[in-house]
Amino acid sequence: MADARPSQLFRNKSAKIAAIPMIVTALFVFVGGTAWTIVYSFTKSGLLPRLKWVGLDQYERLWSTKRWIVSIENLMIYGLSMLVLVFVIGFILAALIDQKIRFENTIRTVILYPYALSFVVTGLVWQWILNPEFGIESIVRSWGWESFAFDPLYNADIAIFGVLIAGLWQGSGLVMVLMLAGLRGIDQEVWKAARVDGIPAWKTYIFIVIPMMRPVFITTLVLVVTGIVKIYDLIVAQTGGGPGISTEVPAKYVYDMMFQANNLGQGFAASTMMLLTVALVVIPWAFLEFGGSKKRG
């Protein structure tokens, strides 16, 4: 240690060279790219990015645009419903599958396969199933219930729920798998202790097991929320944002502004808002998860 220590810079030289792609990605793309977008969201960029400062103009315009407001509303409605339902469905399915059932593998495989499919495929299948002319609506009517109406993709008021059905179908398998892993991770002796104590199964789930699964819930929450904010392909494929603008979402607004409407500034401002939404979830989570003890992880 004492004498002729090789220069710090050249220790682990190969490792440093190997890490260059990671360093470049982290610094230039993730940090640099994000900073660049935030900075340019305060400019009057149109077809091309220009450093002409306009202060908060882009944001003011953004928040006075009907389409953006509708996008945010949709994201809220879709997001909250998705969040609640995907957790309830995912957990209940996991709990059912955890009952030492037969055909467990088959059932699990069937519930999870939609997750392997792309959002485009998902959107198109459900567009077809929800097609009022041929799909569910026409079938129920053909059974004799002539006034039955279920055409979410053609009814602006409920169109977003048509997307929700598809999103749930695609994503609940993932939550189920994570919850199942969480349930299987619970010490079996706790279940035994609760049985000796005479606690009914539902109470054991609510008061003992679910609180013990907090880490799994939080990780799943972060995963689901970041997925919800990114929602784009599903909308493009299933509804194209329609009817009218009834299923527009922020990610689509960003794309359309940047690459179709030649209004980069709006795109930058909108994407910065999306970043803010994610940050509101991820940063508190990171504090909870890694802030307390530096040692873990």
Binding site: L27, F30, T226, K230
Partner: peptide, 27 residues
């Protein structure tokens, strides 16, 4: 082969996974 700063870059990388792609599209 942990080297100085490796963890910092790695942390940025992991946080990067949560950034909506839309933010980085144009850069």
């Amino acid at each position: 082969w942990k080297f100085k700063g490796a963890d910092a870059f790695f942390t940025i990388l992991i946080f990067g996974a949560f950034i909506p792609y839309q933010v980085m599209l144009y850069p």
